[in-house]
Write a protein that binds this DNA or RNA. Structure first.
Lengths: 166, 166
DNA sequence: CCTTGACTGTTATGCTATAACATAATTACG
DNA sequence: CGTAATTATGTTATAGCATAACAGTCAAGG
């Protein structure tokens, strides 16, 4: 049995994506069940859609896909499924993009840092504990108590640094 | 003449706000002039509006205020003024809130960390260099080249930590 | 059963943001 | 100056993101 976490640089490298998605989905099942919540068909399908690619998808993109699969075609259908996934820690909302991505290693409490490639649009999540510590420290000096952080970086992924650096 | 910067914890404390706003506005004039850009009436007024309070304002709030002052009443009026201010570093967009705040210490190149009080809605900007270093370091391990960061924290400001901590 | 609560679906609406184009003001320069 | 180029303002229209409110459905437990 395989219980170890994806290594801390899961992001922009070629990998067995079908396997990576399947594994994450399996983890999701376990996590949700363990909490007494239900990974219903819409929710599961929404997660599958997010897992198809390491990109961020807008709610309406997800909605279109869900509608095509026979689910409802109204915005709340997508937003509810996505909100559920976010609540369960199975997906993240990317504030800068008003979009959503699957969490590549759900279950562990974490403070994600999201890396967004401005060239190819791919999105990766890395451990943000270092950055989070910096935020906490600076906030503490102002007497502020941090509860949640949004840490996102825009830049160039490894593949896109060759050539189109402008 | 006073050219020194606001100290690095400008945020949630009582202060001479009229003076703080006036001073920031004066700095803005200098900065903009130094770049050959123009702080036109709408732009100046938009900045004044943002400076009135240490809060984040939505574009449409700013728009209403501008319209009341005789400027145009259509969204692009506000968005253009706000985009200008953001470009010049005189204001920041807060991704989490889809809103804007005046930069309390414009002119210096900085990586702001934005602190958002979920209780009173006040917003403060603190130096984010520590957090930024954490982001850069973690990103470098993934081979990602960071260009811009969005670092925002939601929590409780000093004043709101007494009592309503729930 | 049948009640309760959770889930899905709908209609309707509101908020956020930008494209595209017309007019006016400012600046640069011959 | 005066006129061309540029920049800024304003408008209409539309696109994109998100949620409130309500109706019907389904599953689990008493």
């Amino acid at each position: 049995m395989k219980t170890d976490r994806t290594p801390p640089e899961p992001a922009f490298h070629a990998h067995d994506h079908a396997g990576c998605a399947a594994e994450t989905l399996a983890q999701a099942e376990v996590i949700v069940a363990g909490r007494g919540a239900r990974l219903t068909p819409v929710r599961r399908r929404a997660l599958e859609i997010l897992l198809e690619d390491h990109r961020a998808l807008g709610a309406y993109e997800v909605l279109d896909r869900l509608a095509a699969d026979g689910f409802g075609r109204q915005p709340p259908v997508a937003y509810r499924a996505l909100d559920f996934l976010v609540d369960q820690g199975l997906a993240h909302r990317i504030a800068r993009l008003n979009a959503f991505m699957a969490c590549p290693h759900p279950g562990s409490d974490h403070t994600p840092t999201v890396l967004i490639c401005r060239a190819c649009g791919s999105v990766a999540e890395i451990a943000g504990e270092g950055a989070r510590a910096g935020v906490d420290q600076a906030a503490a000096r102002a007497g502020f108590k941090v509860e949640r952080t949004t840490i996102e970086a825009l830049g160039l992924c490894p593949a896109c640094q060759t050539g189109d650096a402008a």
